[in-house]
């Protein structure tokens, strides 16, 4: 009879242990669900933030002032040199026109 009672206790302990294990398994299942939900949320947040990012360049392009660093002083200097070259060309034509071929007409 004692051995029967001992066996019954043992079995009861086993059953309790099995139930506890079962509870643990449920908890872990719950944890996995939570984890999965967390991941979903993270993905959603990530999507949301990435879609926000897509709109950023459009926002940037509109009103922000854009400066192009172009130095034009060399162009102005060359324009000055061109004015001088044009003037020299004009003077050379005037010089050509000033040569009087009548100097070669002599009557003695």
């Amino acid at each position: 009879m004692d051995s029967l009672l001992t066996y019954a206790d043992q079995s009861l302990n086993d059953v309790e242990a099995a139930i506890k294990n079962l509870d643990d398994i449920d908890e872990s299942l719950d944890n996995e669900k939570t984890l999965a939900m967390t991941i979903d949320n993270l993905i959603k947040e990530s999507d949301a933030s990435s879609s926000d990012a897509k709109t950023t360049p459009q926002d940037d392009a509109a009103p922000a002032p854009k400066t192009v660093n172009i130095n034009t002083s060399d162009l102005d200097a060359l324009l000055g040199e061109i004015d001088t070259a044009e003037s020299a060309a004009n003077n050379s034509i005037s010089d050509l026109d000033s040569i009087d071929e009548n100097e070669d007409k002599v009557s003695i």
Binding site: L79, E81, A85, A88, A89, S92
Partner: peptide, 19 residues
């Protein structure tokens, strides 16, 4: 004088091309 004027014109052209 004509040849010299041609040279002046070429100088003018070189500057224009550079610009």
């Amino acid at each position: 004088a004509g040849i010299i004027s041609v040279d002046r014109m070429k100088t003018y052209e070189v500057k224009l091309t550079e610009l």
